[in-house]
Write a protein that binds this DNA or RNA. Structure first.
Length: 103
DNA sequence: CTCTTGACGCACA
DNA sequence: GTGTGCGCCAAGA
């Protein structure tokens, strides 16, 4: 089941604690490819198990939602993050400066 | 096997 | 500080 890059992405994303958010670049760096931030998003795109891979805690460098959410839409993502205590600056932007996950 | 697209990031103007 | 362009890695057609 070792998909290599993908498996690492899922593993890193699952490490994100509740109430925290991580950036694609952060995940990319963890998996060993700091330049593969795009592939991180792709890994979540093919996210085989969105219930175990909290892609809703993964946002871009600006804390902005990707827009393409595998759970049910950005609306669901806002609800989940807000439910975890994450504060939103905009309807699709979280206060990543305060809720950024520290690996 | 080759080209384009893609849930991003960083450098430069 | 803001806007635009290029680059990196991987997968689909």
């Amino acid at each position: 089941m070792e998909q290599g890059f993908f498996a690492k992405v899922y593993e890193a994303v699952r490490r994100i604690p509740c109430g925290k958010v991580a950036t694609y670049g952060q995940i990319a760096r963890i998996v060993g490819n700091p330049r593969a931030a795009r592939q991180v998003g792709w890994a979540l795109h093919v996210n085989p198990e969105p219930y175990v891979t909290p892609c809703h805690r993964v946002v871009n460098r600006e804390g902005k939602l990707s827009g393409a959410f595998a759970f049910g839409g950005a609306d669901a993502q806002r609800y989940l993050l807000m439910n975890e205590g994450v504060e939103f600056i905009d309807d699709e932007t979280v206060d990543i400066a305060k809720y950024l996950w520290e690996a």
